[in-house]
Design a protein around this nucleic acid. Sequence first.
DNA 1: GTCTATAACTGGATAGAC
DNA 2: GTCTATCCAGTTATAGAC
Lengths: 242, 242
Amino acid sequence: MPAARSSSGGSKVAPAPAMRGKGRPRFNGAAADVDREGAILDAAEGLFSDYGFYGVTVRQVAEAAGVHASLPNYYFGSKRDLFDAVMLRRAEVVNAMRLLSMARYESETKVLTVEGSLEAFFEPLLDVWETGGPGWKKYLRLIAIVNNMPALGGEAMARYFDPVVKKLIELLRKVVPEARDEDLYWSCHFISATLSLSFAETGRIDRLSDGLCRSGDVQAVRSRLSAYSASGFLELTRRRPN
Amino acid sequence: MPAARSSSGGSKVAPAPAMRGKGRPRFNGAAADVDREGAILDAAEGLFSDYGFYGVTVRQVAEAAGVHASLPNYYFGSKRDLFDAVMLRRAEVVNAMRLLSMARYESETKVLTVEGSLEAFFEPLLDVWETGGPGWKKYLRLIAIVNNMPALGGEAMARYFDPVVKKLIELLRKVVPEARDEDLYWSCHFISATLSLSFAETGRIDRLSDGLCRSGDVQAVRSRLSAYSASGFLELTRRRPN
DNA sequence: GTCTATAACTGGATAGAC
DNA sequence: GTCTATCCAGTTATAGAC
């Protein structure tokens, strides 16, 4: 394997991606201030979310971004580094939102419920899904893919999202003290599955329902996900209390 | 695109895969009766289920199968045809099992329930997951991947699995006539998600629970999936009856 | 900062020898 | 039926010109 061009870290994931050109002055002579790094990340995000890591070439990314074929390499190093940069860019944002959402729910609500906890867990994602624009939609779809292909980025995925899930588990344990740990974990597993497949927007439900339901219908998901998941979880704890 | 080598059908999916060498006589001079086509399909199944379609090369498949690099092409035509052959091989088997399972449940049970219907829907899959051997495990993991990447085989996936899901919906409609269609479809969407992520065996729940739960624990899934899903679905219909 | 050119290699697929 | 040899398009990545 050839030596990576990027500065530090070696095989570690994305040491410090996309740090070039920050705060550079406008009117630098080039054509009206285009953000090429952002364009590359956006293009990569869209393509990876459709075809996965191996299904995309760096050249396709460059072409979709409208930049020269060598620029993705220049800005982000190897293809793998580019992928990590894509994953990281929004992970931190959304993680902070979700932790805050749950902390706020816990501190500001008198009677904590399972459904309420799950809403606090889901809502930031549903919010960016609905109002965050196409970039966020693609990012969430990408997560759905990685979530089902551990060989690709499962370890990284876990590193970024486990803290959020652990916070949820902690919260649920407080709300339902009689729940067994196994049921807590398996419920979170099921919940993660429904959430991520919803983001995948596969179009399957459209075909299945002959157009009655639409894959990207955020409102439809929002109005069902918490109720469905809470009921499922509570049923498990009801059957085998601690 | 170069013309496919395989006989009929053209772009149609795998018209008649793996039809060579059936019933050929033993003692044909070659080394003790090895099933090369089967070995290729097995190897492809395993690799595709780990890395997806684009993450695998035909040469890797050949090497894993212990055959020469050109044989996958010889037996199955293009890489895409090989993939379709892998998908098809077990689809028909498991589809028949599931349709039979649900038909039997419907005809042999006095009081139909949501949970019972779901069990009939799940059980054949859980059964092959548990007792079918490593090939079936890999196949189910492959389905989990494709389920989340429509660009790859979503249309094919739908073609093979929609009939089974439609049968389930039909059954559930009979059991819970007051359920709204939207809730039926969304519930099936959620159910498909939990089922497929369970098969993915990502190891996520292992890390999350610090070893308390294991990804491949069929019994753990079996004892929770129907109860969880039935409760979730019923909760939705309870909230908005037809 | 951006692009040209190219190195060095791997991909799928096949023709034809055995 | 199987393998050798090969085609050649396309891949990542980089060195160096502008």
